[in-house]
Design a protein around this nucleic acid. Sequence first.
RNA 1: GCCCUCGUAGCUCAGUCGGAUAGAGCGACCGCCUCCUAAGCGGUAGGCCACAGGUUCGAUUCCUGUCGAGGGCGCCA
Length: 554
Amino acid sequence: MDVRDILIEAVRAALDGLGVEPPGAVQLERPANPDHGDWSTNVALASAGASGRNPRELGVELAAVLEADPPAHVVGVEVAGPGFVNFRLADTWLHDVLRDVVAAGDGGFARHEVGAGERIIVEFVSANPTGPLHAGHGRGACFGDSVARLYERIGHPVQREFYINDRGTQMQLFADSLAARAAGREVPEGGYNGRYIIDWAAEMPADADPLEWGYARALADQQAVLESLHIHFDTWFSERSMIGSGAVDATLSDLRAVDAVYDENGAVWLRSSEHGDDKDRVLVKSDGEFTYLLPDVAYHRDKFARADRLVNVLGADHHGYVARMHAAVQALGHDRSELEVAITQLVNLQRDGREVRLSKRTGDIVELAEVVAEVGPDAARFTYLLQSVDSAQTFDLDLVASQANENPVFYVQYANARIHSIARRAAEAGFVRRALADTDLSVLGHPRELLLLRALHELPDAVLRAARERAPHQVTTWVRDLAADFHGWYHDCRVMGDDVDAGLTSARLWLVESVRIGIAVALDLLGVDAPEEMWRDSENDGNGADGDDEQGAA
RNA sequence: GCCCUCGUAGCUCAGUCGGAUAGAGCGACCGCCUCCUAAGCGGUAGGCCACAGGUUCGAUUCCUGUCGAGGGCGCCA
């Protein structure tokens, strides 16, 4: 049983005994200042107003009741400040945390079942099949995959989907650009100028259909780089497939049936302004062609047949799309809350301290594959997931690549490597760890050890919050902090040695095991590997005074 | 003009349903390996939480406004 449930129950009972109505939820928090105890509640402040009591006095009475019959682990109850009630606990509550973590293991620790039964489709990346993914796509890709992992961890059945816009104007421009380059001409007006067009045109067989060949080429390229980042989609959903299946026509019929569309100037319009959009949107152009919107509405209609909740991950440059999709969803008879949209702000790439502008127009792009090749999949994922997607990210390629040794991902992985190193040493020494049930954990009393256990206790909450707020960076932050706590402990506390008795060694081996589980769970949610060994390259670079081109330019 | 996001240490960023003395990494400076991996640890310096109001016991956090940065406002996707 979580210590907080024990305390909350006790507080409720105590308030009841005092004749005070407890607030809806008794808040319990961990004070930043150790002088304020291990856990603290503000119920006295929160409920004083409603019951017409003085917060401080109510706190004193509450503390007296709790002190008289202390809940498990509690060794002291104090009132501080305006009426905070602070609990001081014996270390035993943290030793229970260790047992809980180990009992749950990699698969069970920080796992929740709150999402059971609610199916979620997470759609992300969904780039046009007109070229390679660029560095900016990487953020949405890593974010979407990690959000999906978080949903799975809290019990949702999850599908990862990639929607392929494999028809329309952009595809034709792409094909025309390939054909032009293959023929040695400049790309047409509004076409694709990227360097890759020239390369791909050179690969293209003379008798190939530029559109179909280019489509396959681009898709294969995108799939390859996503695989390199350990991102696997359950469904690659083709826009074209819905034309053939009649899904688009059926969607339009549905919309007509509920009078969600009207005809004007030869076009068919969606009454999106009736559902919060700035204006109505065209579904069928006056030339009879669909806009991109109608098949996309059909796609969402299809997804709703397969899931209870939809989550779309979009780049900030597609933000304008949100209002019309919400409008379309409502026109289809769903509540707007059934479609959630996560916006990832843009990635500003830097090289040599200078900003690299990303533009498909000019072809000046940094491919995601380049990023992965330079820094590796783990550093790429960790870096993308290091900060909130609500703010723009500065991704300095030179920094992450050339200073790889100082990258936080190595810091975390190194903690894991040290853990496995300890286990190897223990095995080599023939030390047999006592069964956990037979291990006296009360010897774990070093401040560093208690810090580690407190940190572990936070992961289940952090995972739940990260999933609900779609904020995987909270897991990144947590695991980085845990690694810091571990390195500090490692420095101060030895597991084996002449001055460490067997009982302490056993307890510390279990502590290390619990930390291993925490790191494993967190890194898995981030999609980052947890290698058991890491050895520094002997060819240490970075000392070159002037000639710093040892990596070979380009 | 309208909509979205952001503004916290020199730089890059965290900051829990509004809590008590605002944190980390990098950079700077000073220390620590006879010992489970020094890709590590400890310490020092560095802050008007953009600005102005409001809400209340209490605001970096919530609301309004101003200023600043980025993005979006097609019968393109």
